[in-house]
């Protein structure tokens, strides 16, 4: 099986302050989805990204936050094992980001052998 990365993207919501129960519920939804992938033995690793960030430009300029010039931000990623891109895409079904107005980008991971 090959490795694929799913990148979760959505429009930034800097003012969104979820209630603790909403947070809990959201964590459960994510964990149930990831757990379903792991139950198939196809889980690699995952990380959720936070809300602080800085962007470095080629001229050395640094801007605050990932929001400045983009319409959407990366909220996190998961690495999964799948036979091919379609297999990986099937795993993306049910991803909670899809119910939050976002989308999942599925990419193959290149093996670089130095």
């Amino acid at each position: 099986m090959k490795e694929f990365m799913m990148i979760f993207r959505m429009a930034p919501m800097p003012n969104f302050q979820p209630a603790p129960e909403q947070m809990q519920e959201s964590i459960k939804q994510w964990q149930d989805w990831i757990g379903g992938i792991a139950a198939q033995g196809k889980f690699g690793s995952t990380n959720q990204l936070g809300f602080t960030g800085k962007t470095l430009k080629a001229d050395g300029a640094v801007t605050d936050g990932p929001y400045a010039e983009v319409k959407e931000i990366v909220g996190g990623y998961i690495i999964v094992k799948a036979n091919d891109i379609d297999d990986a895409l099937a795993l993306a079904k049910g991803c909670p980001i899809l119910y939050m107005g976002g989308h999942v980008e599925v990419r193959d991971i290149m093996q670089i052998n130095p």
């Binding site: 149930d32 757990g35 139950a39």
Partner: peptide, 21 residues
């Protein structure tokens, strides 16, 4: 369920997959 979700991310086993379901 949540604990099995975590367990499977840590270490896959068929028994854990079945129990999780």
């Amino acid at each position: 369920l949540q604990l099995y979700n975590q367990l499977l991310q840590l270490e896959y086993s068929p028994a854990a997959a079945l129990n999780r379901t």
